[in-house]
Amino acid sequence: MKKYSLPFLTALIILFIWQAAVIVFKIEQWILPAPSQIFIAFWQSRSLIFYHLVPTVTEAIAGLVGAIFVSVFIAVLMERYQIMKKIIYPFLIISQTIPFIILAPLLTLWFGFGFLPKIIIIALVCFFPITINLFDGFQGVDHSILRLLKSMGASQKQIFKLVKLPASLPAFFSGLRIAAAYSILGAVVSEWMGANQGLGIFLIRATKSYLTDRVFAIIGVITILSIGAVLLVEIIARISIPWHYNKLKVKS
């Protein structure tokens, strides 16, 4: 706990200075509301925020799950077949130079304003870090271990199941952690293209109405959601690969 006390204190001090500055310099509320006002705005619009939070979170989860399936499929394919690696890998890298958000209008054109185009956007944003990390994880397996298993007469299938899959889990979770943060971002931005409900559209509306305190409140909620998503992945990782964290502990 002591580890977190210093950053926590720092955050409190910043909030305090912010609050004091707004009062002392009499800053207009529509430019920069004080933390207290933001909190009040949050509290007053809590049911509205919750109403808009549900679809955003649902989209993020659906998009992320979709991305996981696609990533595992692509990574395993590239791992198993050298030719697939040669075909897919360059496209994978090039795909990263495309900001997927620019595809949003096109997807809207094809699929309308519903759930599907948003999930596609989120999955597109999220799949890359998972795929690359997982694939690197497969590639990074200790060659001596592979030699050992071959000497034992293990089949390719056994080698994959017994070694490559577990060995690549830490890398997979590193990718997933990044993707989890992207998923919330992707959901919010995809809603800017058009939606009836969602934190993204709620944020736009609040901005257009000069409800700056509400804008801040929504930004705060989105931030907390992103942190929450990463934490959730972290918890799942700690439960599923305890050995990896033991190793880090031993090393440090």
């Binding site: 001596s144 000497s151 034992m152 007469g153 293990a154 690969i241 050995w243």
Partner: peptide, 28 residues
Amino acid sequence: GRFGYMFQEPLLFPWLKVWENVMLGFEI
């Protein structure tokens, strides 16, 4: 698969507990 082969490095699987590592030989 005919010999028990061991190297200079232990090459234990870090994701398996000691008994699971030993069990691996039987499993394969």
